[in-house]
Design a protein around this nucleic acid. Structure first.
Lengths: 358, 358
DNA sequence: ATACTCTATTTAAACGTTTTAGATTGAGGG
DNA sequence: CCCTCAATCTAAAACGTTTAAATAGAGTAT
């Protein structure tokens, strides 16, 4: 198609004028504005966004990083973000970090830096750079900070801090914001509910240590909540009931097979994510256990599938759409150079008891 | 960070030389190459990809358009594409078109044009421009063609043709490729299986007409397969068993409620997507029907959830990962200026009978 | 008339690359 | 000592915008 120059030539004005009418910055007389608009229309002009991005250093693109798009909770999250992004003329770049090809070095953020994305949303625990890449990674994060590229995290506060500390970024840098939920309390309440129903052998299954991070803090928070509820009821903690390092439907399923074959198996299970819990549920019903008669299961996230499952999964509901919405709107604010009314925002979870537990 | 010029100054060479060593085009002496590389390292230089994209007209970005990221089948698809894209230094831009804010005009493809994405993958039925936007949309598609931006579709051949015809693009344009499966045959086999098991009242539930397209051909193919199987067995077609215009778990669930309350309700159901079928299954078991004792259900897609559900869903398996892989690798070929060994490629589906049917 | 204000428009530089054509260098050959 | 040639390297244009500063032109007030 045509360029600014061609439009200008046809309209008999300078390219600056055309640019001005396009961006509506300074005053352009109504006469020339119309003349220019007509030429734009007839020449079928379209602005070259990459040239514009090159010049203005605004690409109108954001990146959303998440553990895996394959988990419905994250699909829902990004779906919400995407809607708002398009509404504001931003494009969204997708990044799942369960692909081994991006792990260990810091390529994924480096690439985002090189492409000058305007903002980044990070869900869950992004892979840290391997030690031999740490120096470079620090420089990248430093450069992001100088460029004032905002980041919005959805995570635990401590994990957020680990990330920042790793790169030597101060808490008050101003370009980082955190969205969080209280996983410890949420799981505490779920387990307490189970205990009140008489359960004392409660399996706890989750993703545990992932990627290259020393600690998976969201997981640990959940585990803490579990332990607190147990302790409060004076139920001894038994490490054989804890399985770590697994995820998804298959992971949950496998873990159930293992735990249920214990000499003294659990009567209840809590999974750190709904896909895990649904996997547990699947294996339990498949192996002939009655739910919630013989085993109870509680999940985390409240994905759509949970309420359609047979039996319906009891779970901890997290307002993922609200979080997604907050992620984008706050990022937008930050990208606009504004400051955000808070750098940490909490969301409430809710224990929803359905059919898989009693 | 620094720019090409700064590196050049430090190394005491011209920026052309630095660019040359970066891109390894012409011969650069080993001595200067090392000198330059050292400066790049010490100055912590990073190429500005948007400047590069501006100059070369290659943005190293592709877009993946799909009905909704929220459907596990598409999440799996894009997950596969994403892996390969990153492997080849491409970024992927996500576009779900179930957001009403992009419908009816052609903004989503126009924006992709403006951003000069290098290639586009289109799953399912993208919204057509409203009549008053058709002229502009044609120009955009024309411009894409001149720019030689390749498109890979995952759809039915006729739908592919409708798309091309809408914009007046010839079949042999060379920038368009189609990946397809035989939906008619797949559903035919599924229904035939049901009929062989003695079912004669078979509900058919699907998305039907969507968006602004006059016809949803993938849906119609499935419906044709259904009709063919019925006809072959001399079972009269009953339109009251067909529900259209619905989707997802909730949609399937609602439709079951409706159909099962008929005076002469179906004994079997086929949904045009697994989420629909799982919704049916959910409603069926919830209302106390035994599956597959009283009602049978068959789905389409074979999403991961299908095999963990209770009961396990019988479904038509589509090799979505293979399709995703083919989508990217062929797009890559096309983007590299190559020609593809075929412009239409077929994939095989497979009827998988599990527990939800007999 | 003169000087002064606005308003509308243009000039021209700049953004960070790639790339082509040509300049420079130095070696080898006559 | 000059010429040729290959090997290296550089100058400069180009990509399509935005934008600060300059300019022109039309009123206005003096």
């Amino acid at each position: 198609m045509s360029t600014l120059k061609e439009v200008a030539d046809h309209a008999g004005v300078s390219i600056a004028t055309v640019s001005l009418v396009l961006n509506g910055k300074t005053t352009v007389s109504e006469a020339t504005r119309e003349k220019v608009l007509a030429c734009i229309e007839s020449l079928n002009y379209r602005p070259n966004m990459v040239a514009r991005g090159f010049k203005t250093k605004k690409t109108m693109a954001i990146a959303v990083l998440l553990p895996t798009i394959t988990n419905p909770i994250y699909a829902t999250f990004i779906h919400t973000v995407e809607y708002l992004a398009h509404e504001n003329n931003y494009q969204v770049i997708l990044f799942s970090y369960d692909h081994e090809n991006i792990l260990s070095n810091f390529d994924y953020l480096t690439d985002l830096y090189d492409r000058m994305v305007d903002g980044i949303i990070i869900c869950g625990i992004p892979p840290l750079p391997a030690p031999n890449h740490l120096k470079k990674a620090k420089q990248i994060m430093q450069a992001f900070s100088e460029r004032k590229t905002p980041f919005v995290f959805y995570n635990e506060e401590e994990q957020f801090s680990v990330f920042l500390d790793t790169f030597g970024i101060p808490k008050d840098d101003g370009n980082f914001m955190l969205l969080k939920i209280d996983r410890e309390q949420a799981v505490y309440e779920a387990v307490k509910h189970l205990i009140c129903s008489g359960h004392t052998r409660i399996g706890f299954i989750g993703e545990g240590v992932v990627n290259t991070y020393p600690q998976n803090i969201p997981y640990q928070k959940k585990l803490s909540g579990y332990k607190r509820a147990l302790a409060e009821a004076a139920i001894p903690f038994s490490s054989e009931l804890i399985i770590t390092g697994t995820d998804g439907y298959q992971g949950g399923s496998d873990c159930f097979a293992h735990l249920s074959s214990l000499k003294n198996p659990p009567t209840a299970y809590v999974g750190t994510g709904d896909t895990i819990s649904l996997g547990i549920l699947s294996a339990a019903t498949k192996s002939g256990f009655s739910v919630p008669g013989e085993v109870s299961v509680i999940g985390f996230d409240n994905i759509l599938e949970a309420s359609f499952w047979n039996p319906k999964l009891s779970t901890i509901s997290v307002p993922i759409k609200d979080i997604g919405k907050a992620a984008f709107t706050n990022l937008l604010l930050l990208m606009g150079g504004g400051t955000v009314p808070f750098t940490i925002k909490s969301f409430d979870t809710e224990l929803i008891i359905r059919e898989s537990s009693h």
